[in-house]
Amino acid sequence: MSNLLSAELHRMFRHRYYWIGTILFGCIPYLSMYLIRQADIRHNNPKPEPPDGILFAGTFYLPILIAVFVCLHIGSEYSDKTIRNKKALGHSRTMVYLVNWIVCNAGVFLTYFIYVVVSFIGGYFLTNGYLTSFSAMCGDLFISFMITMVYTTLMQMFVMLVQSKSAGAVISLVFAIFIMLAGASVMQKLNEPEYMTADILVTYNGDVNDQHQPNPAYVRGKEREALMVVADILPSSQSMQLAEGAFAPEKLMRMPVYSCVVILLSLAVGISLFRREDMK
């Protein structure tokens, strides 16, 4: 396994498209903070916007990048047919699958780590620093890494089971967009205010009454509980919660556990189907 792993890591790190993608993704937070800083200066804003929201916002856009990266790295194994060489040399399918999983995760981790480092440094240089404490940031960082792992595991499963670079790319990108929209939709429902703008009622005897009109879009009861679970499971809604920067401490434990379950299930399904699959 170590031979295969070192060969695959070498192949990934020598690929120029990987480094171009990583550098471009790393530039996003710096550019975002620079633009916010310029807007603050232009509007003479005495209280510059804290960059906390940008620090982990990358995880929301990451599925697109992961889909492209996984398709390029694993998909090319199918388009070039080089995956046959590994099988013909006696490497088991489980080993091939796991090595690809490790390599893809290593690549995505490094890309995301560079994003976080750039955000972190940019946040201190371009703005007045972060409101979130360092310990909370470490917790958030852990959750965000779990999110990237979920995305990578799912994308890898699609590409390896489809056995086609182009079909794998289409499925992964559609999935990435779908999961981003699903996460945004869930979070939008959950973020609906419970009451609409207050109506102010002045009575004959001069009393003033605030009457809050209930918001019909606000999800209540069991449906809300179910939506909250979905929001904690979906990596895209986890990303949004991270970017919002305000979630209960118990979620710090719950979300990585959900991520772990998704990763293990996807790995189990992926490996068992890949073992049975006829390779062309």
């Binding site: 690929h15 995956i83 060489n85």
Partner: peptide
């Protein structure tokens, strides 16, 4: 055993030397 099944299984983005180096690494 060595095999060439249908079309040759080579990395199209790599040179001949790099393709062989990659195979050497896989073989350890």
């Amino acid at each position: 055993m060595g095999a060439v099944v249908e079309t040759p299984a080579i990395y199209s983005e790599m040179s001949a030397v790099d393709n062989l180096k990659q195979q050497y690494r896989i073989l350890g």
